[in-house]
Amino acid sequence: MANLHKFANPTLFLRLSRALLPWCVGIAVVTMAVGLYLGLFVAPPDYQQGESVRIMYVHVPAAWMALFVYTLMAVASAVSLIWRHLLADLVAKAAAPLGAGFTLIALATGSLWGKPMWGTWWVWDARLTSVLILFFLYLGHIALTHAFDDPGRGARAAAILALVGFVNVPIIKFSVDWWNTLHQPASVLKLGGPAIHPTMLWPLLLMAVAFTFYFIALLFLRVRGEIAARKLRALQLARAAR
């Protein structure tokens, strides 16, 4: 039972997450509703892409989240490897499936957008290929965390993968600037300000806020579940030792 002191911080986390959860759910629901309304009913069609541009309102937030979640996992993994903090392991483990889900949404909606606009479901250009690699990194992370009987060893192996795979994140972000790609360069986070008309930028930003708080709310719940699982495991081990 010597390692039960590790739960000191999870206790603080549990209290904090319980207090913040309703706010995150509220913000996510409201911004999602307003964002969908503006994106589907109010925002104009694009001068070139017509109504198909509305795919942007799910594609772009999902792609941003795919990168954000992986970055968070890389930070948590570094904290876990250097400071051996249990909570960091649990955050990385809880976040990985969500990140894989966001990446899947980005890939699928991008394909559905690419077919009518570019004329193809898929091309092996630098942007699309590096995002597919991100998806496989998420799957590898999930597999590694479950590959060991000892959850601590699984977490360490997955943390190393998360850190090594982090080189892919700047590659994804700058792929459209470094190489000729079929995918167009960044529209919102670019020098000289966004190249999107405000009537289209607003729903996009609201959807991005909605996706972010959706993620935070689910992460709270999933980390809570991981803490419960670790406690249960500790109790079972203690019982077996008696």
């Binding site: 694009d46 942007m56 079929l182 670019k190 190249a195 008309h197």
Partner: peptide
């Protein structure tokens, strides 16, 4: 290919 500009017609 399309560029990164989005605006109403």
């Amino acid at each position: 290919k399309h560029d990164e500009t989005y605006m109403p017609p």
